[in-house]
């Protein structure tokens, strides 16, 4: 279990807890690009116009 206080007895910052959680960082590092690039790709597919050279 993560330590709740530092050596001076003060509570550990929530940002420190966040950055110390390497598995959460790993999941976010994979999940955010996957989601954004997928949305971007789907948008590109549907926003590309059909060639005017083809009837």
């Amino acid at each position: 279990m993560a330590q709740e206080n530092d050596s001076s007895g003060e509570p550990i910052s929530k940002w420190e807890k966040f950055y110390d959680n390497i598995f959460l960082l790993f999941i976010l590092g994979m999940g955010i690009p996957f989601t954004l690039y997928t949305i971007w790709g789907v948008y590109e597919i549907f926003s590309t116009p059909l060639s005017p050279l083809v009837n």
């Binding site: 530092d6 940002w15 420190e16």
Partner: peptide, 13 residues
């Protein structure tokens, strides 16, 4: 993981 682990409270350093 680094060789030297950060000490608790590093956020405030």
């Amino acid at each position: 993981m680094s060789v030297q682990s950060l000490q608790p409270g590093w956020w405030k350093t």
